[in-house]
């Protein structure tokens, strides 16, 4: 049975209530379908992957499906250690978000802007604020979180799965499966 990722949709840091526009929690199939439909998606991964190394493998799975990966903080190291650097770009989350807010930016590969960004494994408060930048200053990009937290400033997110790693892993696997369909 699919993991219910729509439950527990309260901000991970409970006081993180931005205003009238707050994220909806979606099930894995819907998120997977949206990501599959994306023309220029970008997977953005952060240093929390080191705390749950299996997530590197899941990121690589997504990368192998043709989704370029922005390896923020020092996560590039995890990809190098796993021998996968094909479409992995080393860049800080902060400058990346800064570029993403400009509509004339041509992307990490110079091939054009992105229509969907997918955050995973990023320190919660930091990711939330970067989502907020995009939410307010470039609304052309769809903001998707497949992190273990309910991300209030995303467009689409899971509910909180932070305390159930198995369910969280399963949920990400389901998204990947839906993308592959």
């Amino acid at each position: 049975m699919a993991v219910d990722t729509t439950k527990n949709a309260v901000p991970f840091e409970m006081a993180q209530i931005p205003g009238p526009e707050m994220a909806k929690a979606y099930n894995t199939k819907v998120i997977g379908a949206i990501l599959k439909k994306a023309k220029r998606p970008l997977l953005v991964v952060g240093a929390e992957l080191f705390e749950d190394p299996v997530m590197f493998d899941k990121a690589i799975e997504i990368g192998k499906m043709g989704v370029p990966i922005a390896a923020t903080a020092h996560t590039i190291k995890g990809f190098i250690e796993r021998g996968y650097t094909e479409n992995v770009h080393m860049i800080g989350l902060h400058p990346l978000t800064s570029y993403l807010r400009f509509k004339d930016w041509q992307g990490l590969d110079g091939e054009g802007h992105y229509d969907v960004v997918i955050f995973m494994g990023i320190f919660y408060k930091f990711a939330s604020a970067m989502f907020s930048t995009l939410k307010n200053f470039n609304r052309d990009i769809k903001r998707v979180s497949i992190d273990r937290y309910y991300h209030v400033n995303a467009d689409m997110t899971f509910g909180n799965l932070a305390f159930n790693p198995d369910q969280y892993h399963e949920a990400v696997d389901e998204v990947i499966a839906a993308m592959a369909k």
């Binding site: 205003g19 939410k135 307010n136």
Partner: peptide, 24 residues
């Protein structure tokens, strides 16, 4: 150095017209 904002609160609640939603 381009000014980059990351609003923590999308609203303004400073005067009696508010709260005003400033999102986007």
């Amino acid at each position: 150095y381009k000014i980059m904002y990351s609003p923590i609160c999308d609203r303004c609640t400073l005067c009696t017209y508010g709260p005003c939603d400033l999102t986007g």
